[in-house]
Design a binder for these strands. Structure first.
Lengths: 149, 149
DNA sequence: ATTTTTGACTTGCATTTTGCAAGTTACTTT
DNA sequence: AAAGTAACTTGCAAAATGCAAGTCAAAAAT
């Protein structure tokens, strides 16, 4: 009785495979923190305002690392700290993130000012270039602030 | 003791709010079926190759309807059938879907031929226009086939 | 050089969500 | 009238999640 796999059969559709990695409520929020807020430590994610539990955060970081979306590296100057960083594969999610942001802002009452979002929607390519530039330069200046409620 | 809400406090960030509606493994797959495959009935979603359980499918359809992303309407010619359809808000998810598709195809071994995806990535606007055109015309011709595994 | 604090996790346990099989109900077809 | 079909429900076990508390190594404070 060689039954190894958990019978979780999904199709080979790219969308389906993407969702196997990203299809939960937390993964993309962590990626947002890394991508547009310049967060890069456990504590920052934890305090990012969404209220993620530490065990779940720990689990998601592991899974994202296993998927090759982020890397984890201990800081040289303070060995307690772990620095999380997007890989190339991770930063390539910027277009998905941007479209999700624009969609949410357009169809829901969010804490984000419409003017800001409209301008981003008008200049998608520019925004994406800027996000990628900061990633390359290890520039942790936030692209967007926290939208408080 | 007026404690109504389940203390589920999330931030006002558009991404967070979007994920409250879409952040699970099934919702976006149903939307994909509606958007690019021309599926529109319970049975079609069920047989779409991802193996969703009927109780979950039923639940997600309700939630998507409650979020204003889809509508449900009984067919006149066969009152058993319920026709699901994307709303404007729903079809506006096309850019998110497209970017998710491109990302998945680029970074994972999917069942989708690279040439097809590359061409889509090169002509994003055209693809989006076509998707929207079909939606407007109630044209159920699939934009993409099922990528078998 | 101890003690305290900090960052990044585990662990235990109750609650919630999911997956699966088996109904059920309202039509339609034969 | 009987059989089939579409869209669900229901019941229950298994898995995932949320919450509070604890661990552990490294750094800061005393």
């Amino acid at each position: 009785m060689p039954r190894k796999s958990k019978t979780k059969q999904r199709s080979g559709c790219p969308v389906s495979i993407s969702l196997e990695m990203l299809g939960d409520s937390w993964s993309l929020l962590i990626i947002r923190d890394l991508m547009v807020r310049g967060y890069h430590t456990f504590k920052e994610f934890q305090e990012s305002g969404e209220g993620i539990a530490t065990n779940i955060l720990s689990d998601r970081l592991k899974k994202l690392e296993a998927s090759g979306i982020i890397t984890a590296e201990r800081e040289a100057s303070d060995r307690r700290r772990v620095n999380y960083r997007l890989t190339e594969k991770g930063i390539d999610l910027a277009p998905v993130m941007l479209e999700l942001l624009i969609w949410g802002a357009r169809h829901e009452n969010t804490g984000a000012p419409c003017a800001v979002i409209d301008r981003m929607a008008q200049n998608r390519e520019q925004v994406l270039q800027e996000v990628r530039r900061r990633w390359q330069n290890h520039d942790l200046t936030p692209v967007l602030p926290r939208f408080e409620n």
